[in-house]
Design a protein around this nucleic acid. Structure first.
Lengths: 225, 225
DNA sequence: GTCTGTTTGAAACATACGTTTGAAGCACAT
DNA sequence: ATGTGCTTCAAACGTATGTTTCAAACAGAC
């Protein structure tokens, strides 16, 4: 190989550009010129743009899901039969993400944004790829959530998990922009770790909310437009 | 005019396609063929694709922000000086959204998804447009939230508002798909109103969570990968 | 040195995009 | 009927995209 790191340089550039601009808005020419690589190299090494997207996710997600599985292993072993609490489960997830070995200082936030985009941006091929490759740790996480919230009905739990996913994916997918706003408005700097630390209590409290009001309270009256 | 509803047909088709596929992924040719309208009609009536996107948002957001303002007026009048509670504020918002006159049964969920996309998809022009046009009701909602959660620090409140927005936009944007899953899995039917009724307690509980842990609890240990 | 399989390079390919053009169609006032 | 202003239409424009091609460069084995 003349330049042994062509594949990695493409992955690095693609990861960063996808996170910044989204998938459709990032062209192969942007990627290859940022990576200082010939245009044809992407199709040579990966086959297609979609396959490159999959590779970007796989490079992070495969080691991450391994870390997550062992975190769950350790958690369940320590709980010794009794189910882990909601807080423990959520922290196991976030800590696994935060502790991942990172290529650079922006590692986590870049990947959080990619995950958010994967959920938000309706790229059918991507969702199919992620479901096929990583269904196992996802199902395990769902089972832990179920065991940690036995007081919830199946329907309540279902919706509240969606709310959690939404808050997480949405926040992480725009976390850079949100951090900028916060810096300009309040003059505060924030790390992804801090965002996660604020998110977990929010999610846990919402997940364990006592009441499920099925109608607006009597003191709410809305004028008809 | 030969077909007096060309503008509306374009807006209807664009709204639906944007919600399904995102902005960059939806071409003018898709829109015009779904609307059964000539390709040039978009540029004739709206000027450009970006202007069409703005028009799609404006058609919903302008009457909605009027409804919302009057709902806030009534709420503040009824509270007579003392600030409305968090629950009242959230209900005023969701009820205003739900009560909006809708073009079809999917009206709300389509627009929730569009709002989510506007936030997520980094379309600079859109964010600028929304900020310029609708800063007033947005700022008012933020002020009500602030007065309803005086116990929170500005930074905590900022992030928790983002979490709320995320849970809402995400859930509403995919509520059709989520309802299908629920129907197939648990055999339950759900309306948008019921989802909102489940969402509000979740958000209120998260918003009022007691603790903001800035470090994982002592009983969490994650193996290093 | 020569052969072999892999990787790079510049150029072209076909297709899709947003936008523009100019003629045709139409409703309506004169 | 004739002209006027708005709207529709088919076609083309220029540009950008993902992908393919094929020759050149390269590394390692013999």
């Amino acid at each position: 190989m003349a330049q042994p790191d062509t594949v990695d340089r493409i992955l690095d550039a693609a990861e960063e550009l996808f996170a910044e601009r989204g998938f459709s808005e990032t062209s192969l020419r942007m990627i290859t010129s940022k990576a200082k690589v010939n245009l044809a190299a992407v199709n040579y090494h990966f086959g297609s743009k979609n396959a490159l997207i999959h590779a970007v996710f796989g490079r992070f997600l495969t080691p991450f899901s391994a870390t997550l599985e062992s975190a769950f292993d350790e958690l369940e072993a320590r709980c010794d039969g009794s189910p882990p609490t909601l807080n423990q489960t959520l922290w196991a997830l976030t800590e696994s993400a935060v502790r991942m070995p990172q290529r650079n200082e922006k590692g986590i936030s870049i990947f959080m944004r990619l995950l958010g985009l994967a959920y938000t941006q309706s790229q059918g091929h991507l969702r199919k790829f992620l479901e096929q490759e990583y269904s196992e740790p996802f199902a395990r996480f769902m089972r832990l959530l179920k065991e940690a919230t036995p007081q919830l009905s199946a329907v309540d739990r279902y919706w509240r998990i969606q709310f959690m996913l939404g808050a997480t994916a949405f926040t992480m997918s725009s976390s850079d922009a949100l951090q900028d706003i916060l810096r300009n408005k309040l003059g505060v700097d924030t790390t992804v770790q801090e965002i996660a630390a604020r998110l977990v209590p929010f999610l846990a409290a919402g997940m364990q909310a006592q009441d499920t009001l099925l109608a607006p309270p009597a003191d709410i009256h809305i004028p008809v437009a």
